[in-house]
Design a protein around this nucleic acid. Structure first.
Lengths: 164, 164
DNA sequence: GAGCTGACTATGGTTTGCGCAAGCTAGCTG
DNA sequence: CAGCTAGCTTGCGCAAACCATAGTCAGCTC
């Protein structure tokens, strides 16, 4: 099984041994959401959970970890901690996803899709994500703005042109 | 900024407090690639790196970590370790992505895209990924098989129907 | 057969992630 | 005003992730 499908590198990047990926977004992203607990808290938030105890209980982590992680994620801007009050109840707090948090959905679904395919021991996905309008399963795809799905060997990386 | 965009849950899933996500693919995926070093090794592999020393050097991790991680990822099936020989050289080994490893590209690019948007302090993406054919930037998107991009609030999760 | 090189392994130490168990506090209910 | 409950915090201990430095080993070149 031979795969010569490395992404092509352009310009100054062409000689991989001549540059270092110092400001790599992947690395930075992993420092924010690179733990199991963080990803699972995000999953829970996508499923609609907003309260502290529910997060800890449903993710299956201790409250100590939940507190630490939620604090970090809130500080990073993925969650917003908001006070709210139900009728006749005292004021409480809920953790709500911000736009920044919501924007991680493709990454989370991509991981889920991959896990469904390779880590479920042939049983396939336990859960199916569908589009309500069409009732068809959704997929996470790499696409060019033009339209169709882009294969890995059709990709090219270049330094982002800097204005001014 | 109010976001009521939790994914909808169907059938037995509707009452979130009544079920546990026990075989969650996201959790399983994070146990395989949930470290910074693993993700960065994958990045390097996508950039075309195949040799041990290059991996360690270019990712910026120690050889000890590189060895451990590459061993794990190979055991998990994301890399294949292959002997090869260049003319007049002795036999060496290279680490090549398998299909399983390649299939993580959408997840890695999704993380990169998110990091580009939120973690580069307004500077934007250091690198741009384009489609060769059209020379247009690519995006990772959640799509229904029908065609267009699916918004988070248009998603619905149900238990996968089991055959037999 | 001395030296080089690629691919590791070994040792020792710090930091982070996580679990278990317990305690604490503000504000509502009885 | 005692008790309950949501939302935490604290203390302890283990294991995993990571770093730095140094050493090993096999097979080629000279």
């Amino acid at each position: 099984m031979i795969h010569m499908s490395a992404i092509k590198l352009e310009g100054v990047l062409a000689d991989r041994s001549a540059w270092k990926a110092r400001h790599c977004s992947i690395g930075k992203a992993m420092e924010v959401v690179g733990t199991r607990s963080a990803m699972l808290l995000l999953r829970e938030a996508f499923y609609g959970t907003t309260r502290f105890d529910d997060f800890a209980e449903r993710v299956g982590i201790t409250q100590a970890v939940a507190a630490t992680r939620l604090k970090e994620l809130t500080a990073a801007g993925l969650f917003e901690k908001r006070p709210y009050r139900e009728a006749g109840q005292r004021t409480r707090h809920e953790y709500v996803l911000t736009e920044m948090g919501l924007d991680l959905l493709p990454a989370v679904l991509a991981l889920m899709q991959w896990g469904d395919k390779y880590l479920q021991g042939g049983r396939g996905a336990p859960l199916t994500v569908v589009e309500q309008r069409t009732d068809q399963p959704v997929h996470v795809q790499v696409r060019g703005s033009a339209g169709s799905v882009t294969e890995p060997d059709q990709l090219l990386i270049r330094p982002t042109p800097r204005k001014r």
